[in-house]
């Protein structure tokens, strides 16, 4: 039972990671003068978009989403609407946090917001896919010892890694090396992506390593 779940998760993660690489390579073929530094926002949106699509597709196909009590169309629609609102709110939340961390308030607001969108895609969107728009479940998962399944643990790891990656990505900004990747927000979004990829890679490994210690309570 363990192995099946872990293998499923590993393959899901591999697909998501592959989508990030594809999102980096594809525009290079399609868009003229594309480079990760030069046309950073294009790269950022392409990564965010592809990760979003692949995430939704994978989790919809795997059917990991929480069981729904009602199966009516209006309920589903309201859920979808709530998810969108949550996503937007999380973008605003990340934007605020980044501004509090010292990003300029007015100028380059678009760049800051794009970073917030990327962060939300890597964190909130996955939460929405796995847990649904259910704040109580989110609080449970992100409080100590709150994970109840393999997917909860993987969610904890990838979210943590993405946020820490973005955090670490801010460190090279004050250095006076005059490198192209020191422009706001390139180092942070690269840090986020690398952190997310690390999270995707480590989550199955970590769970496999610690499967003896991990005892999930049944829902």
């Amino acid at each position: 039972m363990w192995d099946v779940e872990i293998r499923g998760m590993a393959s899901a993660h591999a697909i998501i990671a592959a989508s990030i690489f594809m999102a980096t390579i594809m525009p290079a073929v399609l868009v003229e003068k594309f480079s990760v530094y030069g046309t950073h926002l294009v790269w950022l949106y392409s990564v965010a978009g592809s990760v979003a699509v692949v995430n939704i597709a994978v989790f919809w196909l795997l059917g990991i989403s929480p069981p729904t009590k009602k199966n009516t169309l209006s309920y589903k629609l309201s859920k979808l609407f709530r998810s969108c609102v949550y996503f937007l709110l999380s973008c605003l939340f990340f934007h605020t946090v980044v501004v509090l961390y010292g990003a300029p308030l007015l100028e380059s607001a678009l760049e800051t917001f794009s970073l917030a969108v990327l962060l939300s895609t890597f964190t909130t969107l996955r939460c929405l896919c796995i847990l649904g728009p259910n704040v109580q479940a989110w609080i449970r998962v992100f409080s100590r010892d709150g994970a109840m399944s393999v997917w909860d643990t993987s969610l904890q790891i990838t979210t943590g890694c993405s946020v820490v990656g973005a955090w670490l990505g801010a460190f090279p900004i004050p250095l006076d090396w005059d490198r192209p990747w020191q422009v706001w927000p390139i180092s942070c979004s690269l840090g986020t992506t690398i952190g997310f990829l690390t999270g995707l890679l480590t989550a199955p490994l970590w769970i496999r390593w610690h499967r003896k210690q991990l005892t999930y309570k049944l829902k």
Binding site: L100, G102, W167, I173, P174, L175
Partner: peptide, 19 residues
Amino acid sequence: GASSFVEEEHQTWYFLLNT
């Protein structure tokens, strides 16, 4: 150890404080 970080030490502290 890095001269830039000494020059911009305030950024380090603001960053840590926020965190």
